[in-house]
Computed example of a mutant assay.
Amino acid sequence: MTQFRPCIDLHQGQVKQIVGGSLNDQGADTNFVSPYDAAYYASLYRKHDLQGGHVIALGPGNQEEVLKALAAWPNALQFGGGVNQSNAGEFLQAGASHVIVTSYLFENGQFSWERLEALKAETGKERLVLDLSCRRTESGWNIATDRWQTVTETAVDSKTLSELANHCDEFLIHAADVEGLQAGIDEELVILLGQNASIPITYAGGARSLQDLMRVDELSKGKVDLTIGSALDIFGGKGITLEECLSWNRR
């Protein structure tokens, strides 16, 4: 059954919800800036035993908040944002259950199996999440790196999902084109993920209501989990409450 997965998105040292496709070196279009720090949300998720959440650092200036969140609920939250072979172990030691990686695995725009193997040797397959966040292209979807601004040649398709599933514990996939817009999920992408879900997959992007949880459950046949950000009441949203998500997970 599809589960709600929590998140903590950090930008410029604050917990925020942004429009994913707008993120660049100058900033981002922002839906919400929290008055609370990352540890507050980590403690909230711990209180409700919300498993499988991810902490994402969107650019520099977030290290202090990342460490606060990981310390507030050790070995329960995944971390992504600038993770590479040299620092992955540090985040695991700081309390991350897994590290999440995208951009490091690409060299000159090409996927690097050598880098994947080196990273896997550092973390172990069981503590590695591959972020296959993507943008829609003429042929389907392609992995987007560098804060979703660089679209690579690597497709998110059955072949890629099958090959990479042997090298990690989970996939995290943001649909960058709809991320933060609260305009509905990318249903075709969710169907594709459900058809190829040999390991746990979390989808994020566009979710706005309890009906979207139901829809992901239906389209993926319960094989894909869903993260909800901007629409959630704890992030200033009006589409769905945390309590509704908790009730859904308890079904």
Rank of each mutant, 00 (worst) to 15 (best):
M1L: 10
T2D: 12
R5L: 06
P6R: 01
L10A: 05
G13D: 09
S22Y: 09
A39V: 00
Y40I: 06
A42F: 05
S43N: 10
S43W: 00
Y45C: 09
K47M: 13
H48F: 04
D49Y: 10
H54L: 11
N62F: 06
Q63N: 07
E65G: 05
L70N: 12
L70K: 13
A72Q: 10
G82T: 02
N84E: 12
Q93L: 13
A94M: 13
F106Q: 00
E107K: 15
E114C: 08
E114F: 13
L128S: 04
C134G: 10
R135N: 14
E138L: 14
G140H: 07
I143S: 03
I143M: 06
T145H: 02
C168L: 06
D169S: 14
D177G: 13
G184Y: 02
I185N: 12
E188N: 09
L189W: 02
L189P: 00
V190M: 11
V190K: 03
I191F: 07
I199K: 05
I199Y: 00
Y203L: 10
D212R: 12
M214P: 00
D217C: 09
V224C: 07
L226Y: 02
S230D: 12
F235C: 03
G237K: 11
E243K: 15
C245M: 06
L246Y: 03
R250F: 05
R251G: 06
